[in-house]
Simulated assay, not measured.
Amino acid sequence: MSTPPAPTVQETAALTRRITLLSVATAAVLVTLKAVVWTMSGSVALLASAADSALDLVASLATFFAVRYAVVPPDAEHRFGHGKAEAFASLLQAGLVFASAALIGREAVANLIDPRPLQQGGWAIAVMLASTVLTLGLVAAQTRVLRRTGSVAVSGDRAHYLSDLGSNLVALIGIAASAWLGASGFDAAAALIVAALLLWGAIGIFREASGQLLDRELSPEARRQIIELITRDPLVIGVHQLRTRASGPYVHMQMHVDLDPQLSLEAAHEVLVAAEKRVLEAFPSADIIMHADPRGKAEPHGGAFAETARTNA
């Protein structure tokens, strides 16, 4: 089965707009349901989940606006576009998740020290079941979009809701145990587990967003694919100084391409344009810079990142 072509920037923008709107709507529904039932039940696990959903709403709103700003075309002040807005939104998500975990942990410890009886346990169980089903549907939709776009903002949002899915199940077990066994300690213990899950999820979100902000290279597989596409033309002798980075929906790449020194400037230009077109078929949102080197006659280039070895890496 052949790999489907990567989506264009316009297709990516449409997909991320729809999924982030769905994320905002889901978070708003969950906050409302959990807040209403928490006032009825007094469940600390449900309070923890409601607080987490409230921060989900804030994070989803940030992502909603970030993915729209990320696809704004380059301007005079941002020549490389605005793609890193997605990574900043993911960092905000990580911070909110950390805050949510701290709030939940504090409430759980307080409840363990001074247990409060659970009221309206049936309603609390019902709302957590509904929350789990809604979150599962959202994560499934986000997974489909992520496979097409690779959006770091959607990835952060999905990681957030994946941790929510786990925390919802834990909270559901804790609330059910407290309601049926009459022991509020289960409810508080479930809240502590939720806090731990959120901390773990926040670390993953932070790692992915910081990698993009620090211009981490594309995967080794993507780099090999780029080199293979460039060197598919026998007139291209080799590729070196390949540098890549992702910026929201965009991919930036630059490289030096070894050509026969006997080629005319016009012929060399035609070779590079053809190579660029091959890369754009696989990476339609790429910004490509290629420098032609006459094989064996090119002086080593200087600058802050001067060549140290002529390799295909």
Rank of each mutant, 00 (worst) to 15 (best):
L280H: 02
I227L: 06
K84T: 06
G238S: 05
L33Q: 09
A14V: 05
R144C: 10
T8P: 04
L165F: 00
G137K: 13
L235R: 09
S53M: 01
L146M: 08
N312L: 05
T311I: 12
N168D: 11
A171W: 03
I227T: 11
L218F: 13
A94R: 09
A85P: 09
A59Q: 04
T132N: 04
V279E: 02
E77G: 13
L138N: 13
E307R: 03
G302A: 11
A246C: 06
G137I: 09
V279M: 06
G185A: 08
I113Q: 13
A222D: 07
T244C: 13
E208M: 06
V139N: 11
T3Y: 05
N168S: 08
S43R: 09
A51Y: 14
D258W: 10
A85M: 14
F283G: 00
A246W: 02
R116A: 12
S178W: 03
I175N: 09
R158P: 08
E11L: 03
T244G: 14
L229S: 01
M290H: 04
S23Y: 05
A304C: 10
R243P: 01
D187F: 10
H301I: 01
A246S: 13
A298P: 07
W200C: 02
A171P: 02
R144W: 15
V71S: 12
A66I: 01
R116G: 09
Q241C: 02
T244R: 06
A89H: 08
R68Y: 12
H160W: 09
A27E: 10
A108M: 13
L280G: 01
T308V: 13
V152C: 15
A268H: 11
V31A: 05
I203K: 15
E208A: 05
